[in-house]
Design a protein around this nucleic acid. Structure first.
Lengths: 251, 251
DNA sequence: CTTGACCCCGACGCGACGTCAGGCCGTGCA
DNA sequence: TGCACGGCCTGACGTCGCGTCGGGGTCAAG
């Protein structure tokens, strides 16, 4: 198929297909002698997946990494898409409920507090971050626990949680600056507090799992970026401290 | 409240609030002597509405016109938001169903046709255009009819419909080029066919309603653009022909 | 062999912010 | 009383996902 036909079929513009080609997200598997793009059925499969993920709010670059992951077969994608769509359904339902709640309140002449009104937006930007978290942790017990608990949190809770988190981070940063070794008692104590904070706030986080988190802090560039922005070297420092503490707790 | 507090409450960044201020979408109702933005409760109300409409896919400029419409009270906004959210719910459900259908098909070893797979995307881009159409026609009988009928259309139907539509447009364009007056019999006949096409395909369109459409073709720049792209002067030409025909049919 | 529809590529534009940079404000605590 | 530190200010430039020309080849139908 030519680009125009594919575009019409998929409900996108030709320009979009050009764009996807240029950024390497979806390059047609062939070209005619004259340079015309030729799309094979497999390309349509890929395009379809691209469009679903795009609709779900993933940036195109991440869509690419998802689709190019060699360890992800078609069924895997379908399952993931299904999960994410159900999430979205849930969220939309929540928003409908919020609007209805407000209509009722208005009818009865009472005003909602700003906190109540903004609740449905709170924190994480709509689709994106949540979509990705779900994508990564989707069917672990920890994720479910976290989802359940955090649903009940009020705005005030969140403020407190954020403050607590930043407090621990600050103490890590101070220890780092003071030259306290990452595998020292002092650093491990902060790590232990970090672990307990997570357990209290989000989900049961035994030392083993905490060690896994620690590894991620240096392997996932987003977490790395988060800590490095506080202080250079902090990501590695926290990672080491957390893993040392896990060894101590378990041993 | 200061901008930081508002941002935290609403789950947006300070930069976003700055942006909304600069483009005039949401300017805080006051400033301190030092130039700090001060947000009043009424500003929070407005922000809330902005965020809901934004989430629904409206471009900010349109959000502004919606909110600045003097003829739209709070209840009106709530009702509109409710409608749009229900739509979105519906659409998400359709996508979930599509994914489930594909999972089943895969289980049974059968392949879906590309048309089936892309069906849920087809035509109109996801949120936006639909949102706007609903916004404009939301609770008219015509809109409901159109929604009902078009739901049942297959890809093949759409191809045919598009071809028919373009045929009529082409005939208008030819008449215009040939110097046939817009209120001549010939032009009115094409207009009448246009009306019947709409009635067959989308919703009952009596002459009076058709005349309304005709007016819109020159008043709404999107329709104008559509026709002007085919031939300069065509929007006015079609508009006149349609209204002349309506007068003839009714008279 | 000429239209007119379709395709190519490059380049600029745009919406909705993100992200510095450089500098003023305000307050807690030494 | 000073000053450090977080919060706020205003430009200004960067980014993402395309839309929109402009100039130019291609291909099937008449």
């Amino acid at each position: 198929m030519n680009v125009g036909e594919v575009a019409a079929l998929a409900g996108v513009t030709v320009r979009t297909l050009h764009h996807y080609d240029r950024i390497g997200l979806l390059s047609p598997s062939g070209r005619t002698a004259a340079g015309y793009r030729r799309y094979a059925p497999a390309d349509l499969d890929r395009l379809h997946r691209v469009l679903v993920y795009r609709e779900l709010g993933f940036p195109l670059e991440e869509v690419a990494t998802l689709l190019d992951d060699p360890a992800a077969d078609p069924v895997e994608h379908l399952r993931r898409q299904h999960r994410l769509l159900l999430d979205r359904l849930e969220r939309t339902r929540a928003m409908v409920a919020a609007v209805e709640k407000e209509m009722e309140a208005r009818q009865m002449g009472i005003a909602l507090t700003p906190e109540e009104r903004f609740e449905v937006f709170g924190e994480h930007d709509p689709a994106q971050y949540e979509a990705e978290a779900e994508e990564r942790w989707g069917d672990t017990e920890a994720w479910r626990q976290s989802q359940q608990r955090t649903r009940g949190y009020t705005k005030a809770d969140w403020v407190r949680i954020k403050a607590e988190g930043e407090d621990v981070e600050r103490r890590f940063a101070e220890a780092l600056r003071a030259g306290v070794p990452a595998d020292s008692e002092q650093a491990m104590d902060v790590a232990e507090e970090h672990r307990q904070q997570i357990s209290r706030t989000f989900y049961d986080c035994p030392p083993g799992m905490h060690a896994g988190l620690g590894r991620m802090y240096v392997e996932d560039e987003r977490f790395t970026a988060h800590y490095e922005r506080i202080a250079p070297g902090l990501a590695q420092y926290v990672s080491t401290a957390v893993q040392a503490n896990a060894a101590r707790q378990e041993g």
